[in-house]
Amino acid sequence: MTRLITKPNIAAPDDFYADLLAVHEGLAKAESDALNARLILILANHIGDRETLAEALDAAKPKK
């Protein structure tokens, strides 16, 4: 990992976490899945850099 920030980088992490759960509130599973997919695409575009994205994909993979 060289580009992906893996140290804490979000101010007020509890607030962000609560926001993340809040947007899903009241949604059915399929709607939540759709929201997550949109969110991933939005964030990925914001990052843009292919190497960082590749590191993020790798970091998210299930541990073997």
């Binding site: 759709a34 997550n36 949109r38």
Partner: peptide, 24 residues
């Protein structure tokens, strides 16, 4: 798969409001 459909639909959905999703 369900997940590839979810991403496909997400890209289409976003493409209406956000230019970034159109190349996807």
């Amino acid at each position: 798969s369900d997940v590839s459909r979810a991403f496909r639909d997400a890209a289409l959905d976003l493409s209406e409001r956000f230019e970034f999703a159109r190349p996807l």
